[in-house]
Design a protein around this nucleic acid. Structure first.
Lengths: 212, 212
DNA sequence: TAAAAAAAGGGGAAAAACCCTTAAGTTTCA
DNA sequence: TGAAACTTAAGGGTTTTTCCCCTTTTTTTA
């Protein structure tokens, strides 16, 4: 009976072998290769007998990280399904990994049985999301959908905030006091749920308020 | 003999009339309307007998500025040629105006004869750039082409700098001292010719180093 | 005309930006 | 082969900007 092939991309050899053993113990899966980082995968994947069915991908790796590697794989081997395996559970990382093309996201302390289930689901349905990930997705979705209504002046301000001007300079441009600008900043931080000016700029770009 | 039609969009009535008189004194041009801001233009342009041949557009205006208005015109009346007329001469503004679709960029203290020449050139060739603007374009082009070589660590850092992490947090993620991160920051500011973290982030996005 | 929204101010802590210096390891080349 | 030149990492110290909280004044709107 033919087994599905798996490769593991993980910079910690010990962990990579441990996961490899677990996966090898599953009836339907066999590990055909381990890679230390994304760069190694991109260089050596062509030398394998076949493109693996599933790639278990760490995110924090030296040289080429999991997000970049997943983007590369999505482009070059769209049939290979990437399952992210990471300790990071912050919304930003999870979303970027999924946007890069990962079919699922597991935390590293995942139970053996869930790992097996996730692998099977990814083969069968093309994706597998845990409850946590679904929550994160819903959360970010509702945040994006809620299409916060921005006022005219707020839009002007946020566009200026995407330039290299200081807030004081922006105030000058908008003929307002720096204190007023500080008020706009504060209100937008809360409305858009961001922590700093970079967050503002990224929101503006992602929502086509500012075209870089 | 048929004259080319011109409208002026400018919030300073005095200036707008002064420019209007100058343009009216040219043999081949007549001013058919003055607007106080971009919004007014978008609302009333349809009521004109014909879409003007040239639009002399101020940039800093209340309600709807020159860049937005030019974008709107580029979309809705692509045959109308926008000539920007502004006091701003910073690279950023000039480029954004040109990207928005302006066919030329004149400083407000332009000489009468150059204004006439610019109008004729815009009609004839579709664009007119003064030496200053060409310099700015070349500069920004060479800056973009010169595709400064960024090292691996610099790329990792610049991507982190596009997130909401503080530099201290980035240092933690990269297992480096905040002081080292500060060094990377400084080097990149100089290499990429930016003034602050927003500049870094925009460079990263424009050069596909970071996908928002 | 009361309530809400916009503009602005005071004051302070945290982060970012800027300077200049040191120390260890690597490369270069004379 | 060994001094000089680079590179990478990091520290000390300062100014500027950002971010935060809380209050007051002015303008707009219901």
């Amino acid at each position: 009976m033919k087994k599905y092939t798996v490769v593991i991309v993980e910079d910690h050899l010990l962990l990579s072998q441990a996961i490899g053993n677990i996966v090898d113990s599953f009836d339907d899966f066999e590990v055909i290769s381990l890679f230390n980082n994304g760069k190694e995968l991109t260089e050596k994947i062509a030398t394998l007998d076949k493109i693996p069915d599933v790639i278990l991908m760490d995110i924090n790796m030296p040289i080429m990280n999991g997000i970049e590697t997943t983007e590369w794989l999505t482009k070059h081997h769209p049939n290979a399904k990437v399952l992210a395996l990471s300790v990071e559970d912050d919304e930003d990382t999870v979303l970027r990994m999924l946007r890069a093309g990962a079919k699922g996201y597991l935390l590293k302390d995942v139970e053996k049985s869930i790992l097996e289930y996730a692998l099977l689901e990814v083969i069968k349905n093309g994706f597998y999301y845990t409850k946590d990930v679904t929550d994160i997705l819903m959360n970010s979705l509702s945040k994006e959908q809620k299409s916060v209504e921005l006022k005219e002046k707020e839009l002007i301000f946020i566009r200026h905030a995407c330039t290299e001007m200081t807030y004081r300079e922006i105030a000058g441009k908008m003929f307002l006091s720096p204190k007023t600008i500080d008020g706009y900043r504060q209100v937008l931080f809360e409305k858009l749920n961001v922590k700093n000016r970079i967050g503002l700029a990224m929101y503006a770009i992602r929502n086509n308020i500012y075209i870089p």
